[in-house]
Amino acid sequence: MCHLSRKAQPLFEEFAHDKNSNSSPVAFVQVDLNASYGAAAIGIEFGIRATPTFLFFVGGMKVYEIQGCDVQQLRMQLSMFLHPVHPHLSLSFPALDLLGLKSILFDKVPDLAAVSAKLRSFLDSATTWFQPFDTSLSKADTIGILFGTVIPYVEAFTTSRCLPPHPLFDLWHDATTSMSWNMPEDQLFPLVDLWRIALRNEKVSSWCADRNGLDSPPVLLLSKACERSSKKFLLTLLRMLSNALSNRALGWKILLSAHNNLAVLLEHTLVHEDTNVRKSASSLAFNAFGASARAQNRESMQGRRRRS
């Protein structure tokens, strides 16, 4: 066992003990990759490149990974799995009880012809185009996917027309990645608006929930935000993320894998000078709380059923 693995051992045991004392449904498993060929095969299967590596799974799906022994990051991530529902959630406030935790949605469909024209003008203005290693899409390829696959699907979804039986969502990811690499964030807002509408489709949001880290387009677009981001980009991003958090699997995935970026985004948009940005940020914060509370309540109920 390496030095960092020995350093992480007491922390791992501490949280495992905390889990047992609180009857949490979270399971802790430790694998020594040098113990056997089978253990080494597990490391290969999950792409372990350094030790220690901590993998987090929800419903059998990997949602987060930490390499090394960053104690603060580990405590933050593990606490999201282990902490019981906050006692304030058990208090009764009639006005809040009537409000409930139903997500705030942004369903208004934009003029898709105008969105297409804006995207086309931004793409045409790009004088150079870098081909990301994981997609290798040229600008012509990106334009072909965007206008031949993505926009027609969104148009069909918003007009209740027949949807393609096997949509090529992987191509959506590739086009989004290619554009995020090559276009400034203040030109990405029409693309983010397409995702805002597309995420109201169950197939799209479920596909995004199956992606990890920056392979999930909502998480990738969230990573582009900063304090200097344009108002248009922030508005569409906040509303897109609000819709994403309305989906149980995708919302929980974003809370687990992108909580730092989400917190930074809310930190500067909740006090933004523009009223609409502040309102949209408040909606996102409410949806984030609702997604977290629903997940924790569900885990608490599952734990009680196991004990009964």
Rank of each mutant, 00 (worst) to 15 (best):
L235N: 03
N287F: 11
N182G: 02
F130M: 06
A281Y: 04
F28I: 12
S246A: 15
F54D: 07
T53H: 04
F157H: 12
Y64S: 05
D97G: 05
S280H: 02
V85M: 12
G43F: 03
L214T: 10
P217K: 01
S292C: 11
H268R: 00
P25G: 09
L237K: 03
G68A: 04
E299W: 01
L4R: 07
P165A: 14
A50N: 05
T128S: 13
T159Q: 14
E227I: 06
K232H: 11
H3A: 14
E65N: 06
N182C: 04
R294Q: 12
W172R: 01
V204P: 09
L235R: 00
T51N: 04
G148E: 10
I44G: 08
L98P: 00
R304E: 14
A175K: 02
F122W: 02
I104N: 12
Q302P: 00
R239W: 04
S24Y: 03
V277N: 09
R49I: 15
R307A: 12
A288W: 03
M61S: 09
R200P: 07
W252C: 14
N287K: 06
P218V: 08
D97E: 13
L119I: 10
L11T: 15
T135N: 09
M1C: 11
H268P: 01
I42N: 01
D134W: 03
L96N: 06
T236S: 11
S23F: 08
E14M: 09
M1H: 13
L171P: 07
N247W: 00
L235M: 04
K19G: 09
L270M: 14
C2S: 15
L89E: 15
E202H: 12
L188A: 02
P218R: 01
A258Q: 01
L199G: 05
S160E: 15
K118Q: 15
M76W: 05
F157C: 08
S216G: 03
A244S: 13
L238F: 07
L33S: 11
E65S: 14
V204Y: 01
N243P: 07
N243D: 08
C162M: 14
G43M: 04
K279C: 07
L256T: 13
R120E: 15
L105H: 08
N20H: 11
L238I: 04
N243A: 03
D124A: 13
F12L: 13
P87W: 05
A16I: 01
L245E: 08
E13L: 15
A263Q: 07
N20C: 09
R307M: 08
V204S: 08
H88L: 14
Y64W: 01
P94E: 00
K139T: 06
V31Y: 02
I254R: 06
M301N: 11
I143L: 02
P84F: 00
S308Q: 03
L78K: 04
E273K: 06
T142I: 04
T269L: 10
F286M: 03
W181H: 13
G47P: 02
D134A: 07
T158R: 07
S242K: 00
W181G: 02
T53D: 11
P94M: 04
M301F: 08
P87N: 05
A117E: 12
L194N: 04
Y153Q: 05
F147E: 09
L123I: 13
A8L: 15
A175P: 10
I104V: 15
G251F: 00
C162I: 15
F106R: 00
S92P: 00
L98V: 02
A27K: 10
D32V: 11
F189P: 03
G100E: 10
P94D: 02
